[in-house]
Amino acid sequence: MIAVFDICILIFLVAIAIIALSVKDLLASAMILGIYSFLMCLLWAEMGAVDVAFTEAAVGAGVSTVIMIATVYQTSRKSSD
């Protein structure tokens, strides 16, 4: 059961990573990176690394998304690729 869960999240992670890099809108890219971090956090909780999962939920999905959006706000939202 846990192996199926594991495989689903891993496939989803790869898909999310590709989407985050291929969208032209940088704001959307930053938000999708937040989803990526949350999935990563789920995966680590499943692996028994609870402290790492907690840190990733607070840092990766919280603060780093916010500072990335702050930068997009201060610079430009369009990306050529």
């Binding site: 609870v50 402290d51 999962a53 907690f54 840190t55 607070a58 840092v59 919280g62 603060v63």
Partner: peptide, 9 residues
């Protein structure tokens, strides 16, 4: 789970 880093963040 927790500690200085998580609490601080």
């Amino acid at each position: 789970p927790g500690g200085g880093f998580q609490g601080g963040v």
